[in-house]
């Protein structure tokens, strides 16, 4: 079962659209669930995600208008894996591994998906997975830095999963990197 992980679309203020190369890949009928770790900033972004799969889970980012009913944190169980979601602006110091580990522990999850930095980053630490899918649109950061468009895809099979990292290079080619992940046995 395929689960799409995206973040930081900032559409349309910082980026007018999802790159064409990505839109060609993200078509309906393939992916079952979408997890978005915040900063969609518009209805357009949400509609785009909903068109990919019927089941979309979102947590609120610092640029999402406060009236949206999205939660700050969310835990989703798919198969035998539990996945925690948080945008990350609340984590201090920003993007520090220690702080993220504290969030992961408090949510009691196997995988933590976050965003905020617009930079794709995947770490497997002590049998847990930390995923920042990056910015789907390649939106610039709040400080104006340019970013590479990216997202991640999880193929979940019971307690195991394969993570695919997608990045759009400056040559407009999509680079895909797989990574195997297996949940630790609770006894071990």
């Amino acid at each position: 079962m395929l689960v799409l992980l995206v973040s930081d679309l900032h559409m349309p203020e910082r980026s007018p659209n999802v790159p064409k190369k990505f839109r060609e890949l993200l078509v309906p009928g393939k992916i079952q669930h979408v997890l978005c770790s915040g900063n969609l900033t518009s209805r357009t972004s949400l509609d785009f995600l909903r068109n990919i799969a019927g089941d979309v889970h979102v947590v609120r980012g610092d640029c999402d208008r406060s009236e949206t009913s999205w939660p700050d944190e969310k835990v989703v169980r798919i198969g035998n894996l539990s996945i925690g979601m948080i945008h990350g602006h609340q984590v201090f110091p920003n993007n520090s591994q220690k702080a993220l580990e504290a969030v992961r522990r408090s949510l009691q999850v196997d995988i933590l998906v976050h965003g905020s930095t617009h930079e794709q980053k995947v770490d497997e630490i002590d049998g847990n997975l930390f995923i920042n899918p990056g910015s789907l649109t390649g939106a610039s950061t709040s400080s104006g830095d340019k970013c590479q468009p990216a997202f991640a895809l999880l193929d979940i099979n019971g307690s195991a999963c394969t993570l695919y990292r997608y990045k759009l290079g400056s040559d407009n080619k999509v680079d895909v990197q797989p990574l195997e992940f297996k949940k630790r046995c609770p006894a071990a």
């Binding site: 079962m1 089941d55 609120r60 939660p71 700050d72 944190e73 989703v76 169980r77 798919i78 198969g79």
Partner: peptide, 11 residues
């Protein structure tokens, strides 16, 4: 699509 459970929190 029935295989997902979720819990969420908001301050």
């Amino acid at each position: 699509k029935r295989n997902v459970t979720s819990s969420q929190s908001a301050k």
